[in-house]
């Protein structure tokens, strides 16, 4: 009897641990903008909680960020949320298309400056943890 209780307790703690770990792993994926294309990072990975951010900032149009360009012209009414920024933006700039780091910085900061809300200094996005 005691033996069984013991195994039960161990089983329960293992399940609890796995659940807690995977919850925090999911939470991490949601709150930070992990980009593999940079390789090893210079700075702590930037804060960005996709859905919560867009809700709080009241952005309805996905194409504000997930844009589509054709021959250097923004295509209205089309969006590219099926692709990551890195699928088009290479690390180095190509003509008018900014490099990957610049693409993130320009898009994120220009809107924050325009709206007078949201982070603009390095460490507000690249928060140490």
């Amino acid at each position: 009897m005691r033996h069984k209780l013991h195994r039960y307790i161990i089983f329960c703690s293992v399940v609890l641990c796995v659940t807690l770990c995977s919850v925090s792993a999911f939470a991490q994926e949601d709150t930070y903008l992990k980009v593999d294309a940079f390789g090893s990072l210079e700075r702590p990975v930037s804060m960005f909680d996709h859905d919560a951010h867009n809700e709080k900032a009241m952005i309805e149009d996905c194409a504000e960020c997930h844009h589509v360009y054709e021959n250097g012209k923004l295509v209205e009414g089309e969006s590219s949320e099926d692709r990551g920024c890195a699928d088009c933006h290479t690390l180095k700039a190509q003509g008018n298309q900014p490099g990957l780091r610049m693409a993130y910085h320009k898009q994120c900061k220009s809107c924050h400056v325009e709206k007078k809300k949201g982070p603009v200094a390095c460490g507000e996005c690249h928060v140490k943890r």
Binding site: A121, C122, G123, E124, V127, K128
Partner: peptide, 13 residues
Amino acid sequence: LAYHQLGDYLTMV
């Protein structure tokens, strides 16, 4: 201090 984010970050920058 700003780089290490010691103290209030924005104030330090």
